[in-house]
Design a protein around this nucleic acid. Structure first.
Lengths: 112, 112
DNA sequence: TCCAATTTGTTCTATATCCTTGAACATATC
DNA sequence: GATATGTTCAAGGATATAGAACAAATTGGA
């Protein structure tokens, strides 16, 4: 992107931020993937999720923290993510941009 | 993207589709850029706009048609774009995916 | 006890697509 | 030719993708 405006989010990034926000501290790679799948029927591979998480943390929009091992069977520790104040701001902005462009239009579409 | 699901839109693509829809046949490179800037205060370079238009037309989400020269001063002919039925569908889908993830959440934010 | 099998989760690799700017080019009027 | 308007090109960086590789935790049987 050469020199991006500096405060833009890709569509996966928006979805990941929304899921992290929703999960309020309980979000980690797998649960984020599942949350998006359950709510929006959109299936991302884990590779996509983790890549986005890494970028978002790098930009300061997320923080991460290792969890304790659970007594559930086996498996590696989870890496929990949380959204930061700048993260909320940039997400709000991105959603708002689209909202403004949608204002007052009707795409048609069959009523459910 | 390797093998993408096949029906996904980048964030610029969503904005461009929305602007084209709004302009109802009167949308061309420059007016699309201006529409987005005016409505959403989001400034895209023309290169970004044209690149997205080209991709979207390639996927069958847009059609284009050359306009007649206007008697306005000078300048090249405009290339008018219109959204197709599949374009509307995929746009609807993309917006819907985000909507579902937003459902019921409050990002805070200072009231205007 | 210990270690192989199993489970759960993250990281890495390679590649494709998307996005970006600025310059170049084209075409129309004056 | 000068100027105005609009589109196309070129090159590179950012984002997205799938799947394999790797890591770490629990369980159960020899």
């Amino acid at each position: 992107m050469g020199t991006m405006k500096g405060s833009d989010l890709g569509s996966v990034e928006q979805h990941v931020l929304l899921a992290v926000f929703r999960l309020r501290g309980k979000g980690y790679g797998v649960s984020i993937r599942d949350e998006i799948a359950a709510r929006a029927e959109r299936d991302y591979s884990l590779g996509s999720i983790y890549a986005a998480l890494e970028r978002l943390e790098g930009k300061g929009y997320l923080t991460s923290e290792e969890g304790e091992p659970t007594a559930e069977r086996g498996g590696r520790r989870k890496l929990y993510f949380d959204i930061t104040a700048p993260g909320k701001r940039v997400l709000q902005d991105a959603l708002n941009t689209t909202d403004k462009l949608r204002e007052g239009i009707d795409l048609g579409g069959v009523p459910a």
